[in-house]
Design a binder for these strands. Structure first.
Ligand SMILES: [Mn+2]
Ligand SMILES: [Mn+2]
Ligand SMILES: [Mn+2]
Ligand SMILES: [Mn+2]
Lengths: 228, 228
DNA sequence: GCTGATAATTAGGCATACCTAAATTACAGT
DNA sequence: ACTGTAATTTAGGTATGCCTAATTATCAGC
């Protein structure tokens, strides 16, 4: 169990979430590693006695049950740590990801258990991501990208991507965070910006497509109650 | 800056504390690594543009100013983490060392600063070890091994070695911890056991030499007040 | 000053996890 | 079926940091 292996499993898990198999190229891009290096690692992860992934040449990778469980364990570490850094140590939500990325490999089961207990077994991290359970399962939730929301509809923010601190600071400044309601007033043509109302504020903000792609929502009715 | 380098610097610092130079063999023993491997690393640490250590063949290693500062930074991480795990997360004092040993390499300066602040800039860790300051200095304190205490004298426990959890649990069961007073009633011949009174208890305990070697004290007068 | 034990170093390897450059495979369009 | 491009794999190599076995240096005792 090395850090590198854990990072691969976590990446493959995340790539599987959208689109069944994780390709060599997508893993390489996500980890910022050369594709050739990924091929080598995929082989190793699929050899072994009890493989972490299923892998056939040119077919991409897919986690085995064992691999998925390990991935979820690391993701649990990551998200619990983000919650802990935010709630207990006073980090801002744009600061937690990088620190958690390192610590997730270093903490013991005892550390995991203690902070989970201290935080009251939280369901979500500071960005609204669901925290996998100790038993290796993760709650399901129907969500959609903000970009798929039809014009005129309202939605609740469920979670936002945490990989770019700058985007997080920008969203903060707009008041966009998990639990906040949005209304899509208008959409510019040719992948143009989205005109959005945030919360109960009348003001309409124009958000670029790149930023909106990082926001996951659940549709709600006109009066703002959740629809799921 | 790799974990391995930090571990070498920390080890050399600790070995320098007693006896000016750290020998290849002592480093190897401390890190549980083959002596040949140590030689290789000592070369690397002393080459470089700005070396971490001074090293001449067959002469052992000695930290440079830079190396000492780095060692103290890692030791600060370690001891702050031990204090944090103990005070904030409810670890027992025999559980903190191994966890801190991993985490000391993973936390950022921000993490260090936050827990230091939350703990109120502590002076000592749970075993009584002094915590280096942020500026790379460490307080001095005159202390001696319990084994050097003359029969009939009293002393205050300053700190105990944290590397063996079993010894820590044993000391706990006897009520021996930093700040507690001891009186050396008698000493068996030929490196025999030490007969000790602990705190204000009349009862006399017999402690083996190996355990006593892990305890550092400062002499006090008969009535128990510190003498330093 | 020689000798033998001990400590330390050198020599040669191994595993992990990356890299670049070259070769191959897959597959979409004709 | 053919062909070109893009994705992927193979081949060969590097840096860390460890290992064992063989060699050499140091130093204490005679
Ligand atoms: Mn994250
Ligand atoms: Mn997150
Ligand atoms: Mn310790
Ligand atoms: Mn300690």
């Amino acid at each position: 169990m090395t850090e590198a292996i854990d990072d691969y499993l976590k990446t493959i898990y995340e790539l599987e979430e959208d689109g069944g198999r994780a390709s060599t190229a997508s893993i390489a891009k996500h980890l910022e590693i050369a594709p050739a290096s990924v091929t080598g690692m995929l082989k190793k992860l699929s050899e072994k006695d009890q493989p972490w992934i299923a892998y056939e040449k040119h077919q991409g990778a897919k986690l085995t049950g064992r691999g998925r469980k390990r991935a979820l364990e690391i993701i649990r570490h990551h998200r619990l740590l983000e919650k802990f850094l935010h709630d207990s140590l006073g980090y801002r939500w744009d600061e937690v990801h990088d620190e958690a990325e390192k610590l997730e490999h270093a903490i013991s089961e005892r550390f995991e258990d203690r902070i989970a207990e201290q935080l009251g077994d939280p369901i979500e991290d500071p960005h609204g991501h669901l925290i996998p359970r100790k038993d290796g399962t993760i709650p399901e939730r129907s969500q959609q990208g903000l970009l798929e929301l039809p014009v005129g509809y309202s939605a609740l923010v469920l979670c936002v991507s945490d990989r770019d601190p700058e985007i997080l600071r920008y969203l903060s400044s707009l008041g966009i965070r998990p639990g906040v309601g949005l209304r899509l007033v208008e959409k510019g043509p040719f992948d143009g910006p989205l005109m959005l109302q945030v919360g109960s504020d009348e003001k309409v903000h124009a958000l670029g497509v790149k930023v909106c792609a990082e926001i996951q929502v659940t549709m709600s009715t006109k009066d703002g109650s959740a629809d799921d």
